Amino acid sequence: MKKIVFVLCAVALSNVGFAQKKYATFEAKIENRNSDKISIIGPKKYKKEIALNKDGFFKDTLKVADGMYQFYDGAESTMLYLKNGYDLKMKLNAKEFDETIVYEGKGAKENNFLAQNALYEEQFDYDTALASDELTFGKLLDAKKKTDAERLRKADLEPAFVALHQKSIDQNVAGLQEYYKENQAIKALNETPAPSFEYLNHKGGKTKLEDLRGKFVYIDIWATWCGPCRAEIPYLKQVEEKFHNKNIEFVSISIDTQKDQEKWKKFVNEKELGGIQLFADNDWNSAFVKQMGITGIPRFILIDPKGKIVNANADRPSSPKLIEVLEALLK
């Protein structure tokens, strides 16, 4: 659930303003680095890229608005708290990214708290909480909020940092509540008749859900611009191959905009995508997409041979659990 925490914490990228005329100095030594440069992204569209030397070292001065920033080494990232006047030194081993981050110098206390907080958040069982009933979920969330606030209070950190991190805690809770609410609405679709669709088929003509009656249908809602969607493609191909000639159809529905229809066709051809490739009639506003409560992609849906929804939020192709589920249904 780390990815959810980072998404929810993104709201903390706010700032106090250019309150000082000094610069912040920031240096780091990164062992086993993921990239030849690091990126720092923050408030007011702030972005700076800094090259690392052959030993994974850099030192630079930063004119910043006091606040929260995101530090990237390739795909790995961590939160930073920066202020003009800070003299911050970081050490980390990218092979164990979060576990090895340590700061020294002015500003180290707040940033060590952020580094340790990433590990602390991983200890919370988000999957269990989100799968629980509403009463239990509320109790778990209340307990977490109190624990987080108490932990922050005892850390004895700068008041400005405390205010920003408390805002992050509050936004985290609000985001989880909204995510839980959406999940519950999606779960309510299970065991109900699937809404119909009739979409353009890459091979010509149109295909509707009713054409696939008598078979299980595994649907992938995706788009060519969606990185996480593209990352699932190799796994989806493997699943399709494993269940070839079984009583199941694999259907991919693109929600690219109408102006990108040719882009979609080219993508399907170049990537040699299998299964049934369809193009939704009105991207995010397509009736099927809205009726299934789809607000983020990729999203996977499993429908039974009679047109009833087995799982409105099915496992991804990259999850080993999907193979188990399909094997049990198709044995």
Rank of each mutant, 00 (worst) to 15 (best):
D98R: 09
I253H: 02
N201E: 08
F197V: 01
I101C: 04
Y199M: 02
K242G: 05
N247P: 02
F243K: 04
L212R: 01
Q261M: 09
L176Q: 11
N111C: 08
Y235E: 12
D66W: 00
Q238K: 14
F300E: 07
A163D: 14
Y218K: 00
A143C: 04
Y46M: 01
K47Q: 13
N190C: 11
A75I: 04
W284T: 11
K22A: 14
I38A: 12
F137G: 10
K83G: 04
K139D: 08
A194W: 02
T257S: 08
V173D: 09
F288Y: 10
Q184C: 13
K203Y: 05
T192I: 06
L130C: 00
S14Q: 14
F137A: 06
L278P: 03
A75P: 15
A174Y: 04
A65L: 04
D211R: 02
N285V: 00
I101F: 01
L278R: 00
V217S: 11
K271M: 12
A129I: 01
Q291R: 10
G204I: 11
N34K: 13
L330T: 13
A10P: 00
D73M: 10
I186A: 10
N93W: 03
D125Y: 05
G17K: 00
A108R: 05
E232W: 02
V325W: 03
